[in-house]
């Protein structure tokens, strides 16, 4: 009896529509929380496919740009073909529903993001002429924004690996 009284008192304080809205927000938040690792993986899929494809479409420019990178210029062609191939391959592997494939792809994706972040940081710290042929709108970002963007994705990748127990 006491329980019933409490419920009715609560309903008087909070109109029905407000309760419904609150519960909807909670449900959406819970849905996002439980699916966050998958959302991060799909984010990686989209991003790597986008940047990889953009590099393939501007291959000549990408290779020319790579040739100007100090110490790495001599491997411009290998990097030029290797990076976009790796990005597209990782994007495809991330959607394959086989445990070890997805695990390896997510590890490799996060590692690659770490390598990109280190490259950008070194470029900002030491290079006079900063070079980034990162593909699509991503190369239009400022350097600090780009590094922050990469760090967020790096943390997201590590979080997805931890949450997914991959």
């Amino acid at each position: 009896m006491e329980k019933r009284i409490n419920i009715s008192a609560y309903q008087q304080d909070h109109p029905t529509s407000s309760t419904k809205r609150g519960s909807l927000i909670r449900r959406v938040a819970r849905w996002i929380y439980f699916r966050l690792p998958d959302l991060i993986i799909y984010g990686y899929v989209f991003m790597y496919m986008y940047t990889g494809w953009a590099k393939f479409m501007n291959m000549a420019t990408f290779i020319k740009g790579n040739s100007k990178i100090p110490h790495l210029g001599q491997y411009a062609k290998a990097i030029g073909y290797g990076i976009p191939t790796l990005e597209v391959a990782l994007a495809v592997l991330l959607i394959i529903p086989v445990y070890w494939v997805k695990r390896s792809a997510l590890w490799a994706s996060t590692l690659l993001m770490g390598v990109f972040t280190i490259y950008l940081s070194l470029m900002v710290m030491f290079a006079e002429k900063k070079l980034c042929h990162c593909g699509g709108v991503i190369e239009a970002m400022g350097w600090k924004t780009h590094i922050a963007f990469n760090i967020i994705w790096l943390i997201a990748g590590l979080y997805a690996l931890k949450r997914k127990k991959l």
């Binding site: 799909y42 899929v45 989209f46 496919m49 479409m57 959607i95 699509g136």
Partner: peptide
């Protein structure tokens, strides 16, 4: 996943 791949390529 395939749709997202397509969307990525399309956006590029």
């Amino acid at each position: 996943g395939v749709a997202i791949l397509g969307a990525g390529a399309g956006m590029a």
